[in-house]
Amino acid sequence: MGNLNLKINGDHHPVDAPDHWTLLEVLRYRLDLTGSKQGCDKGDCGACTVLVDGKPELACLLLAGASEGREITTIEGLMPAHRAAGGTGADPVQDAFDRAGALQCGFCQPGMMLSTRALLNEEERPSRERIREALSGNLCRCTGYTQIIQAVELAIHETCGEPVEHPAWAPDQAPWGDAVSTVPGRKGTGSSDTTQGEQA
């Protein structure tokens, strides 16, 4: 058994790691949870964001040894949690990011989606300003953030049925294909066949 016992995505993981290893290093190189990314080495970019007791924190600045006893959620944990709750497909945040064009290189996005997930767990209908604030610790170099914010608003829209603005590039149509995700207890989140939706 390992010298550490970490609770990650609902499971207890015994793991052997020297004291000077960060949580990020343990996730990536000991547990093969490589969805948490490393971009800056030292807390400047947010790519390594994980949820610790539900709040976004930087795994590159957390000592693995000091993370015992905390509930850690990585990007790999979202879809299983969504499925366990009776949903289909991926977490609606993941699905919305994919459909709204928020994933270009995708490298910053696991952190970005976890920050989004934490925000939407806390607030049902955050304003655009609040979304910008909540994501302001996650650097993206590809998108300029507009499609990311649209993705978050799409996820909100589908959860709450709030109206969502169409982007300038799709003035006469809903910009996004149908969701592959369904959420238990909610109807009308779309068909489960993306390709038919896209090509209809």
């Binding site: 004291d19 960060t22 080495d41 030292k42 807390g43 930087l58 590159c60 600045l61 957390l62 000592l63 040894g65 000091a66 006893g69």
Partner: peptide
């Protein structure tokens, strides 16, 4: 070490030398 957001970068930069860290997290 409290949150570690200042100390850990400084350790990585070898601006600080420490043989022992006492975590206050618990």
């Amino acid at each position: 070490v409290a949150g570690g957001t200042d100390l850990l970068p400084n350790l990585k930069h070898e601006m600080i030398e420490a043989d022992h860290l006492v975590s206050l997290a618990g």
